[in-house]
Amino acid sequence: MTRYVMVADLRRCVGCQTCTAACKEGNATPPGVQWRRVLDLETGTYPDVNRVFVPVGCQHCANPPCMEVCPSTATGQRADGIVTIDYDLCIGCSYCIMACPYDARSLVDRTEYAFGEAATAAEAARADRRTIGVATKCTFCAGRIDAGTARGLVPGQDPEATPLCVNSCISGALSFGDIEDPTGPIASLLAENQWFRMHESEGTEPGFYYIWDKGKL
């Protein structure tokens, strides 16, 4: 079985938000909607403080609470672990947004443009009316993965089959791949470093790992 996951090495992330920009450009999300965000966290108490940049977004949980509550079955899960939304089934009730512990979903009620009332040429060309009034979120660039694997490419290793945020990361903080592949880079990363997953106590089994130090867990 394949399960695609993302790994963020918090030691490497510099908070440049290039992943955010790449996601926005690639997925043409409307103003105010960002599927890939990088949080800028301050921890500790002066003078013993830290600043940490944490990429966040849909964690593509193995047990997604959004899917559990969705009344229309619009939220689904592929065999490779990617959590999906069927825009033609979703009723826009926002219940999945309330159920997500990672604040990863959005919904916009009307078409908005970045620069006022009129769409730019790019916005006009790429507008997807199906996404108005329904929940949206990070797809792990499932379209790229599917197109790439159909050509024999390997997600996480071949850029054309890899999520845009990972491709754009300037510091190599983001990695992507199949966690079930014992010889793959994701398995190595997680075996050689210490990591955590966010809100682990919720039992969601997130598919997003955060590396914080070298060495085994």
Binding site: E68, V69, C70, P71, T73, L89, I91, Y95, D109, I132
Partner: peptide
């Protein structure tokens, strides 16, 4: 609540997931 949802004319889809959805 019908007035609130983003796609009111699909409201009947609310009945599709009795196995786990309290809605």
């Amino acid at each position: 609540v019908w007035l609130e949802i983003g796609k009111p004319w699909r409201a009947l889809n609310v009945f599709f997931h009795p196995r786990t959805s309290w809605m």
